[in-house]
């Protein structure tokens, strides 16, 4: 039996265009400093990379039933966040497909700050796995036996 035919009812139930809602947070000076320290780049422009906007909003809605380990990103960056400014993020499911018998979801998040500056549009390419299965089993199967 192929993987797609197993336990994919959750993936099937998530519609393209699904509104994942909005969230907001303040990008503090400490967040920026901590991010720069962790990635070893003292002038890193986009600490939002660690905020994982698409996954963050997806999990607020689907954490109990689905995981979306990221296999890639398609993103554009417009203005780095400014310390002390509140960031607003909205997200939707923009596509879904099956490739090589695996189910994927594309989740797009748009971030703007309190002044209306567009910060980034980030698209997560997520390998959609129901929480009933180990999220990284495919990675392990493919790479850890080599």
């Amino acid at each position: 039996m192929s993987e797609v035919s197993q336990d994919n009812s959750v993936w099937e139930s998530i519609p393209v265009g699904d509104d994942l809602g909005v969230m907001d947070y303040v990008m503090t000076e400490k967040m920026i400093a901590d991010y720069r320290e962790v990635v070893g780049n003292p002038t890193a422009a986009y600490p939002t990379v660690a905020a994982r906007h698409p996954a963050n909003l997806f999990y607020r809605k689907y954490r109990s039933v689905m995981r979306v380990p990221n296999t890639g990103h398609d993103s554009q960056f417009f203005n780095p966040p400014i310390a002390g400014k509140r960031i607003f993020v909205k997200a939707t499911v923009t596509d879904k497909y099956i490739r090589r018998e695996k189910t994927y979801l594309i989740i797009e998040a748009t971030a703007t700050d309190e002044d209306g500056r567009l910060i980034e549009i980030s698209r997560l390419v997520g390998l959609a796995r129901p929480t009933t299965r180990p999220a990284l089993a495919d990675v392990a199967k493919k790479w850890e036996k080599k």
Partner: peptide, 14 residues
């Protein structure tokens, strides 16, 4: 890059 750059990346090996 910082003001308008675009990227497409795939993670292919752990």
């Amino acid at each position: 890059w910082v003001y308008g750059g675009r990227i497409s990346a795939r993670y292919i090996h752990p």
